[in-house]
Design a protein around this nucleic acid. Structure first.
Lengths: 160, 160
DNA sequence: TCTCAATCGTTCGTCTCACTAACGGTTCTG
DNA sequence: CAGAACCGTTAGTGAGACGAACGATTGAGA
């Protein structure tokens, strides 16, 4: 146990990367996302949660009970993966999954009381991580970044 | 064959995502990176290349022959994964891998002639993809984004 | 009313990617 | 000369994005 110190410069290859790579937007995007994703997951893991848990809980909190397909489209989680996420959430008692009497193909997923408490906690936790990840930027820069990324993701999210 | 139209809104969930998710920087980063990565890989695949191929070829082109460990630190590719990448590159005749007579632990990796041609091609190809991915942004916005991402990735890459 | 397409939840499987652990061989240092 | 550090390599993990297909159910059209 000594062979582990020379890995590719932990999460920030500030070192001598080729000029062509150093400022390549797609690469920077990738690196930034990896780091950010990792920090988010690490922090959520401390309260036995994952990224998708937050997404589902938030969707339920904001828009009320929904079918799995609806949750899928709201959160961007594939409906095949949604199954496992909901299993985990029900195991933790954060949501309730019951067949929809009105349409027996569907399940109705509902936020429980402890689910509501959990998402408050996650809100705070996540805010801290955001803050840490964006630490190198000033507040206006953070806003700017968010705006630019939104434009990228939503294609034409113009507003001014 | 008909059950495939309702997946989570292809690569741009412009739909009704919860407000808490819609402008969450870490999430936007993730979504943007996924899309950008996919486009890059798709386009590179058309010439039988991958993202890491470009990184290694660029490193060699700019800094000359190097050991695998050095390439690893220059590109951010883990040295365990570097093996496969170099296998692919040598298979395609783009690089040459030979034991270093000066230090028999190392290999010396060298760019071949056709490797030099390949990276010119990839340069052009990649520029096109960058352009497509960043299409929603104006040129100054693209610069701004690059600057912000670099600050994020390199921690304190201030310059003015 | 019967039929067919569509929808929903679910299972299984694939591929990629970042990352770890451990090995055998080599070189460096004390 | 012994032990630490380094190198390339193999193997494996865990997560994430994604696709195919199936049984059950519902809705629309002939």
């Amino acid at each position: 146990m000594s062979d582990s110190g020379s890995e590719p410069t932990r999460a920030a290859d500030r070192s001598a990367a080729p000029a062509r790579l150093r400022n390549l937007p797609t690469r920077l995007l990738s690196l930034a996302a990896i780091h950010s994703d990792r920090r988010v997951n690490e922090e959520l893991a401390r309260v036995d949660a994952r990224k998708w848990h937050y997404a589902v809980l938030a969707a339920l909190d904001e828009a009320g009970p929904a079918s799995q397909a609806e949750l899928s489209s709201r959160t961007g989680i594939y409906r095949s993966d949604m199954v496992a996420v909901l299993n985990e959430l029900t195991d933790r008692g954060l949501v309730d999954r019951a067949p929809d009497p009105a349409d027996r193909r569907r399940n109705v997923v509902t936020l429980t009381g402890s689910g509501r408490r959990q998402i408050r906690k996650l809100d705070g936790l996540l805010a801290d991580v955001e803050d840490e990840v964006l630490a190198p930027l000033t507040p206006p820069e953070r806003e700017q970044l968010t705006r630019l990324l939104a434009a990228l993701v939503y294609g034409r999210g113009r507003n001014g």
